[in-house]
């Protein structure tokens, strides 16, 4: 019985300490020291929040760099992968559908050139990054749709690209949100930007 009483007191004290005080300390530290990250790395255009740098959005129009396929349709109030197993016939159907879309949107590509990351769904459904090859593959389509020159787009990808950390960890990749913010700026600040560069 004395154990039950102590357990109740322990639960009350530590639920408050670990469940309230600890997260609140975290929130305060985040608010003061990391105001941008702690709110979800939100990015703005002309004072209006257009998304999070860490979260992929749907970019259905040909003028944008597209993120990887999403099993949750880029709905960031949820998250998740397809959970299709490697031998599931549904996986072949899903990848085949994604492949057809990619080929239709990027007629310059052939099947053998399409990287698996561009047609297989991400783990979170919100993967904001694509490999450099994915990005370069999309340039001709975006150039056609926006009038921005291919050379300018290529430079943009190179400028925004991140290399593996210490040459060991991670991929050569680029963030789709950052790329598309740059496209938006190029199209809205100076109509001649693309052709001029």
């Amino acid at each position: 019985m004395v154990n039950v009483l102590r357990s109740l007191r322990f639960t009350a004290v530590f639920a408050a300490l670990l469940g309230i005080v600890y997260p609140f300390v975290g929130v305060v530290v985040g608010h003061i020291a990391f105001p941008w990250q702690s709110q979800g790395s939100l990015v703005q255009v002309k004072g209006r929040v257009v998304g999070s740098e860490l979260i992929a959005e749907a970019f259905p129009q040909p003028m944008w760099f597209q993120a990887r396929p999403s099993a949750v349709n880029y709905n960031a109030s949820g998250s998740g992968g397809s959970n299709l197993g490697p031998t599931n016939p549904e996986l072949v159907k899903e990848v085949s559908k994604n492949l057809r879309t990619v080929l239709k949107q990027n007629p310059s590509l052939s099947v053998a050139q399409v990287p698996t990351s561009m047609v297989e769904s991400s783990g979170s459904g919100l993967d904001p990054d694509i490999t450099l090859k994915d990005a370069y593959d999309q340039i001709p389509r975006i150039s056609d749709a926006t009038g921005l020159s291919q050379a300018w787009l290529k430079t943009l990808v190179q400028r925004k690209a991140s290399a593996p950390a210490l040459g060991l960890f991670g991929e050569s990749m680029v963030n789709v949100i950052e790329l598309n913010l740059s496209i938006w700026e190029a199209l809205h600040t100076d109509k001649q930007a693309g052709s001029a560069k």
Binding site: V95, L99, V111, E120, D127, D129, I130
Partner: peptide, 20 residues
């Protein structure tokens, strides 16, 4: 299976994130 059925090559990226 995907290589045979669709002709794509590359690592298994289903359910994975690029950044890691």
């Amino acid at each position: 299976i995907l290589t045979h059925a669709l002709g794509i090559h590359g690592p298994n990226m289903e359910g994975k994130e690029v950044r890691f």
